[in-house]
Design a protein around this nucleic acid. Structure first.
Length: 1087
RNA sequence: GGGCGGGUAGCUCAGCCGGUAGAGCAACGGCCUUACAAGCCGUGGGUCGCAGGUUCGAACCCUGUCCCGCCCACCA
């Protein structure tokens, strides 16, 4: 990094080199230091761990750049900074990807190759993608500490998972129970609600007839029930009727009447129609339903068709008399509501699971056993029809749950699963046991709610908005299903065995290894109620033994297996390990012995310095998108409080989401994703980062129109407007587009065989590149003029006006940038620096100072003036580089090296703090450079210069032509112009300049009025043009005059508006009148 | 169905504790002025989704309404 800056800005020429300098200097390493233990001396960011399923996309780029910007900003402020990187094993997602490839490439399923071989393959996949992710992050400039890189399934994080599980299990906060879960039939695992998305499907209501067994005279021979999933009838346990149909119906009617009374005029018709329907129904259907309710009470049975199984007719309030036939079939094992009915009628009803894990019907389904669920549906409908039991079919649009990973429809499915108990528990939950911050909380969800409510965790930039969704989600306190029937993940460390009665259990308990520190055992019933092993148990139960340390798995596992216990085959939900991330990465529970990899940072205490856990927990800020506020953020807060006694971070920065040109979420699977590396290749990394920072305003999501160059004709295609191609079946193909020019189809992912493909990009990044280019060239100009510059203390008072103005504006920009960062508004922060740099430093100062630099050596005074200018230039560049650095680190670092080479000591009154690397340089501190009075004067001068330029431009005068100029007005206003006469002549290219109260109008002059000043530029006049222009200005002023006069004539305004507002209007009126007078004079002068 | 957010210049977004509508890009006119044509100088362009209300005064506050997006719940 020596010699001059290359003439053109080429980011590729220095990006790699800059990265290497940072790494060589260990600039991003976090070193625990007891002196920095205070919260305000540390800054800790835990990277939201990307999944190892694939490469990073634009959303990650946003997330990573925001974190990097904050981290660099704090590092420059001298904070002891840790940005902790790592990746997530992403259980279901990764296994799904690898299984899919296995199927596609080798035609094998996971069962063909077995658990061990599959897991081995997934590790290989993980290694490949983790390396790729790290490369991508490095290219983006992420200043995280690579010597601490973690993976949720590495030995360090796994130890934390075991300890957390053991603690929760021992506190009875983890239990196993039979529950209805969302079942993914393809991946054959439970999926969480959060992993399910809903899609509208055109379906049907099938109205089925079930025969009544031995109806009494006057009773119906059939009941009719409706369903959207006919195959579930095989598992029906009952048909339900409302216990009091009339009363329920009357209540509905009363509600509708109340609603009608309160409704607006336009809403009435709809409500009236509904009310009529209900009333008609009360007459037509309710008597029959009352009869059915009576039949139910009388114990009448129904014959379930196809299965010829008798099922009871029961009364339950779940049946809604106002809907359908008023009767509902009950399938407890395959519908959440029906499950609720079953819970209320457990003695009368049996619960029948009719599905195998793969979605085929099981042995309980008689002739339908073995059929796939949708084949079964068709056959059942056909068979019912053949039996004359299909009453009718109705079209029905319905929202159907799909598994996020396999994209297949999920089934509600009854199975045994492990849960974390979220609700409050009797006796409370002991949190932070063994730490200095131990406390007792009501329950796991509640401790996180409390932390958010009392401000220990705050959301930014709009705190209130997300506090509500955070606490209301947690407020449901729904148990968290943590078991997944997968092979990739942390295997549940519990061995268990079911017992029919207590005697056998006793014999086993007597032989359990007595190692209370390494084992915890409970006896559990099927509902998940756990009791101590010495409790008196009657009836069936299950012995559950949790093994604390993985090192004991083999030894204790064997002992347990010898007693007939079996290890649970399931693995933990991936969010379980992510929830531990803020401390698992730091070596909890045992920093001193954390099994780090070779070459990695030791996590324990050493050389008198604190351990990493002590040093960096709790962290400072969590940076993420709002979509995982609940899934991840809430659970980290919860587990942080539970295990450490303290929140894992105090601030949560929720950033915007990047959408495509149509306002849709970007993703690879939608074919509108953009790879950050493609953007970096095309525009440079700083350009990408610049735009990402600029996009992050408030919480507003931002659209990023996406383009591609057509591989057929080369035309730029706006993907927001282009049509998609068609698949063979005639459906829209989201992964291809048709060129808007040549109409030919192309692909944007490179996955369509035999089709030309194009890289996707967005021209918004050009703006970032332009800014970097400007910075590069301005730096070249400064460095070119700097020579080898030494430092001499200067007093502010001795500087030229423009020097003091620049420093004043610099200080204003510094303050604005810093404040915006404190407010989590990167867009305002970067704009403050950009506007100063471009609009003030480049557009004005560099131009103003050129004559001083060229005059160097012409006299002692000129030399001194040039020297001052150079020193100011060096300081301005220095500060601009520092302020820009957190946003665009590469270019600033590259220029910094050259600046340091030429001017190692920079400053005005005294030298600024020095640093070899910009990334380790001190963030600019407040300076006493601000001078608002001077800024006001300078702004007035700039206005004059602009006005003269405007006159020139109006008459198309060649910029090279030097023209005479005269300015007249009141003495006080002329003073400012006189002070800047030198600049005015130079910037507006004047041959002569007259400034006087009665300055003569030059011949053939174009004119302008600026406040109380009249400006004339000679030798330009085109009388017609000038007259037309003056009249245009006159019309505009007239409008202002009228509205201002109207305001001031308004008694209410004068009486009620604040005095300063009234004064401002009066001043505006006076000014407008004066200008109109001048315009009139000028018009007259043209005659 | 419930909740949240957004609709401001051709595009992407600021402004929103009320007081003469802003930026960048695009467009138009003029300049290759020895840092930068990825640049410089200048110009045009918006009844601030729609309708009411509060106010002396509304892009901003309130009510309603229409679109768009997100989250949650649920539909036998």
């Amino acid at each position: 990094m020596s010699g001059e800056l290359p003439k053109t800005y080429e980011p590729k020429a220095f990006q790699q080199q800059v990265t290497e300098r940072w790494l060589e200097a260990g600039a991003f390493n976090a070193n625990p230091n007891a002196e920095d233990l205070r919260a305000d001396k540390r800054y800790v960011v835990m990277m939201p761990l990307p999944n190892v399923t694939g490469a990073l996309h634009m959303g990650h780029a946003m997330d990573n750049v925001m974190q990097d910007m904050l981290t660099r900003w704090h590092r420059m402020q001298g904070d002891n900074t840790l940005w902790q990187p790592g990746t997530d094993h992403a259980g279901i997602a990764t296994q799904a990807v690898v299984e899919k490839r296995l199927k596609e490439q080798e035609g094998l399923t996971r069962h063909d190759i077995g658990r061990e071989a599959l897991v081995e393959r997934i590790w290989a996949w993980k290694d490949e993608f983790q390396a790729r992710i790290i490369r991508q992050q490095q290219q983006m400039g992420c200043s995280c500490d690579r010597s601490r890189q973690r993976f949720t399934m590495d030995a360090v994080c796994s130890a934390a998972v075991r300890e957390a599980f053991f603690k929760l299990f021992s506190d009875k906060l983890i239990f196993r129970g039979d529950r209805l879960v969302n079942w993914d039939c393809m991946l054959q695992t439970a999926v969480a609600n959060d992993e399910v998305y809903h899609e509208t499907i055109q379906g049907h209501f099938w109205h089925l007839r079930y025969p009544v067994i031995d109806p009494k005279p006057g009773e119906p021979a059939f009941v009719i029930v409706a369903t959207t999933r006919p195959e579930t009838m095989l598992g029906d346990a009952a048909v339900a009727c409302h216990p009091h149909p009339t009363a329920a119906m009357q209540k509905k009617i009363a509600e509708a009447e109340a609603k009608l009374a309160a409704a607006d005029e336009k809403d009435r018709p709809a409500i009236e129609v509904e009310l009529e329907r209900l009333k008609a129904r009360l007459v037509e259907k309710i008597p029959a339903l009352e009869q059915l309710a009576a039949m139910a009470r009388d114990g009448r049975m129904i014959k379930l068709p196809l299965m010829d199984r008798p099922i009871p007719l029961i009364c339950d309030e779940w049946a809604k008399p106002e809907l359908g036939s008023g009767l509902v079939k009950i399938t407890p094992a395959h519908d959440p509501n029906d499950y609720g009915v079953w819970q209320r009628h457990q003695d009368e009803l049996e619960i029948r699971n009719i599905l195998k894990p793969d979605g085929c019907l099981n042995a309980l389904c008689g002739p339908y056993a073995g059929l796939e669920r949708y084949q079964a549906r068709n056959k059942i409908v056909a068979d019912m029809d053949a039996l004359g039991l299909l009453d009718h079919i109705e079209d029905h649009e319905t929202e159907v749950g799909h598994s996020d990973r396999s994209k297949t429809i999920v089934e509600p499915y009854l199975s045994k699963q492990w849960f974390v108990r979220m609700a409050d528990v009797e006796g409370g939950v002991n949190c932070g046991v063994g730490t200095r911050k131990a406390f007792k909380g009501a329950g796991l969800a509640q401790i996180a709610i409390d932390a958010a409510n009392d401000g220990r965790v705050q959301f930014h930039p709009d705190g209130e908005r997300y506090l509500k969704s955070f606490t209301s989600w947690l407020g449901e306190k729904r148990d968290w299903c943590i078991s997944r029937q997968l092979w990739w993940g942390h295997r549940i460390p519990v061995w268990s065995r079911a017992f029919e009665d207590a005697s056998e259990l006793k014999a086993v308990l007597a032989q359990l290894p007595a190692e209370p520190d390494a084992l915890k055992a409970w006896i559990s019933d099927s509902e998940g109620n756990q009791q101590a092993i010495d409790a008196q148990i009657a009836g069936p139960c299950e012995l559950q033994v949790c093994v604390r340390f993985s090192k004991d798995d083999e030894r204790l596992g064997k002992a347990l297996e010898a007693l007939g216990l079996q290890r649970d085959p399931d693995v933990l939900d991936t969010w379980f390990s992510s929830a531990l991330w803020p401390f698992s990465t730091l070596g909890w529970p045992d920093c001193e012995h954390a099994p780090i990899l070779e070459g990695q940072r030791f996590l324990g205490a050493q050389d008198g310095q604190p351990s990493s856990l002590e040093m960096y927990y709790p962290g400072s800020c969590l940076v993420t998108g709002r979509d995982i506020l609940t899934l991840w953020v809430a659970r980290m807060v919860m587990f942080g409080l539970y295990t450490q006694g303290d929140v894992p971070f105090h601030d949560v920065f929720l950033h915007a989401k990047i959408l495509d040109g149509k306002g849709e979420t970007m993703s690879k699977s939608r074919g509108n994703g953009v790879d950050p590396v493609d953007i970096i290749d095309r525009y440079g990394v700083d350009a990408m980062r610049y735009i990402i920072c600029e996009m992050q305003t408030g919480i507003q999501d931002v659209r990023m129109p996406v383009q591609a160059d057509c591989p057929h004709c080369g035309q730029v295609v706006d993907l927001g407007r282009a049509k998609h191609g068609r698949t063979k079946e005639g459906h829209e193909n989201k992964f291809t587009y048709c060129c808007t020019a040549c109409k030919q189809e192309f692909d944007v992912l490179g996955t369509m065989k035999g089709m030309k493909s194009a890289k996707v990009y967005s021209d918004r990044f050009e703006i970032g590149m332009f800014t970097c280019n400007k910075l590069w060239n301005a730096a070249r100009f400064v460095l070119m003029n700097l020579g080898d510059l030494g430092f001499e203390p200067l007093s502010l008072a001795n500087l030229e006006t423009e020097d003091r103005w620049l420093l004043s504006r610099l200080e204003a920009a510094r303050a604005a940038c810093h404040q915006a960062l404190c407010d989590y508004n990167p867009s305002n922060a970067i704009s403050a620096v950009r506007d100063f740099f471009w609009s003030e430093m480049c557009d004005w100062y560099l131009e103003l100072v050129k004559p001083r630099l060229t005059a160097d050596g012409q006299s002692d005074a000129a030399t001194a003036s040039a020297k001052k200018a150079r020193q100011v230039l060096a300081v301005a560049l220095d500060q601009v580089l520092r302020l820009f650095h957190p946003f665009i680190p590469f270019i600033t670092e590259a220029i910094w090296a050259q600046l340091c080479a030429q001017a190692p000591v920079r400053g005005i009154e005294k030298p600024l703090p020095a640093s070899d690397l910009c990334t380790l340089a001190r963030w600019p501190e407040p300076q006493a450079w601000r001078n608002e009075a001077l800024e006001t004067q300078f702004a007035a001068l700039c206005e004059v210069i602009r006005t003269v330029r405007e006159i020139r431009a109006r008459y198309n005068v060649a910029p090279k032509a030097e023209l005479p100029c005269a300015i007249r007005g009141p003495e006080a206003s002329l003073e400012v112009v006189r002070l800047g006469a030198r600049h005015l002549s130079h910037m507006a290219n004047l041959s002569s300049l007259q400034i006087a109260v009665d300055a003569a109008r030059p011949a053939h002059a174009g004119s302008a009025v600026l406040g109380d000043l009249e400006l004339f530029v000679g030798d330009v006049l085109d009388e017609e043009k000038e007259r037309a222009r003056l009249m245009g200005v006159q019309a505009k002023l007239q409008k202002t005059l009228e509205s201002t006069e109207k305001k001031l004539a308004n008694a209410g305004f004068l009486a009620k508006a604040p005095a300063d507002v009234v004064e401002a209007q009066k001043a505006l009126l006076a000014d407008t009148k004066a200008q109109l007078a001048l315009i009139a004079q000028n018009l007259k002068a043209l005659d």
